[in-house]
């Protein structure tokens, strides 16, 4: 651990500091958006968008390397595909809810496949794997600024519209009867999620985005008393997981993204198991009590 701490403050290794800062800044997005996505039960939808993004990255690589659109950065392709995926899912979700599941999975699969096809036809070496898990050590100053801006947008939206977000996630029909524009709230959540997914996955990777949108929020949801508590808890947990993952990957020389996801997943499963055992014990206790009461009544 001391090796990592030394590296963190080593002026000749700014990339370690950037990675730690990126972990912190992305934690705020993971905490807020992850909680909203979890209680609104649209994690599958976020998963489809993040995987479809691979198609956009592949397309941008193909177009720029082939010289068709020279210098097209992968993030632009990613953004185009994210917006298309979000728009498709949004329309289907609002107009043909019964098809939502099929469409989400289709977008997920088609997006990834397009990415692989584009990358196969791109001269030179490009590894789809690097986009699945990203590389947090490659984060630069520009990305950090973008992340900070998106953090501020997410915080401002939640501060301004917390009641509307809470109500439309809890009971959409009732929220409508209170005049909440639930469709607009849904589309806003979808848009912010799509943009965040694009930005986050370019350096932490697709798998980590979807894991960090669901696992910290899911873990926090077990103990939080309300949505706000879940957001704060998920933010803290995301930051802990990404910091621990970064430090461990430095010490053990292992890929950061995969390590962060494993830590977050283990924490979630651990808390879920403890909760499950507690509930079982409680039920068994109640049954035993019932038996004793029954015996006493029978006497």
């Amino acid at each position: 651990m001391s090796g990592f701490i030394t590296a963190l403050f080593d002026p000749t290794m700014p990339f370690v500091r950037n990675a730690a800062l990126a972990g912190f800044l992305s934690s705020i997005l993971f905490g807020i958006l992850g909680s909203v996505v979890t209680v609104k039960r649209i994690a599958g939808l976020a998963g489809a968008i993040s995987h479809a993004v691979l198609g956009g990255i592949g397309m941008a690589l193909f177009l720029s390397v082939r010289g068709i659109v020279p210098g097209l950065p992968p993030i632009v392709g990613a953004l185009i595909f994210a917006v298309i995926a979000a728009a498709l899912i949004g329309v289907v979700s609002l107009k043909a809810k019964q098809r939502e599941d099929t469409v989400i999975n289709a977008i997920w699969a088609i997006g990834m496949s397009l990415g692989v096809l584009f990358i196969a036809k791109t001269p030179g070496y490009a590894d789809p794997m690097s986009y699945m898990f990203g590389n947090i050590l490659l984060v630069g100053g520009r990305e950090l600024v973008l992340l900070a801006i998106l953090d501020l947008v997410a915080i401002a939206l939640v501060l301004a519209f917390y009641p509307q977000i809470e109500a439309s996630a809890f009971d959409e029909e009732f929220a409508t009867t209170r005049g909440v524009p639930v469709q607009a709230v849904f589309l806003a959540i979808l848009t912010v999620t799509a943009v965040a997914v694009v930005l986050l996955q370019t350096f932490v990777g697709i798998v980590m985005v979807i894991a960090m949108l669901t696992l910290p929020a899911g873990t926090a949801g077990y103990v939080a008393r309300n949505l706000a508590g879940m957001m704060v808890g998920a933010t803290v947990l995301s930051w802990l997981f990404s910091f621990a993952g970064l430090a461990l990957s430095w010490e053990l020389d292992l890929p950061t993204g995969a390590l962060v996801v494993t830590i977050a997943g283990a924490a979630f499963l651990g808390v879920a198991a403890v909760r499950g055992l507690k509930a079982l014990a409680k039920r068994a206790g109640r049954r035993a009590e019932g038996r004793v009461a029954g015996q006493e009544a029978g006497r």
């Binding site: 519209f161 809470e166 209170r178 005049g179 939080a224 008393r225 309300n226």
Partner: peptide, 19 residues
């Protein structure tokens, strides 16, 4: 059941008015 929310917060939703 996975939505953490108190009774008071559920009732408070009745006070919502518009966007």
């Amino acid at each position: 059941p996975a939505f953490p929310i108190s009774v008071e917060e559920v009732v408070r939703m009745g006070r919502l008015q518009g966007a």
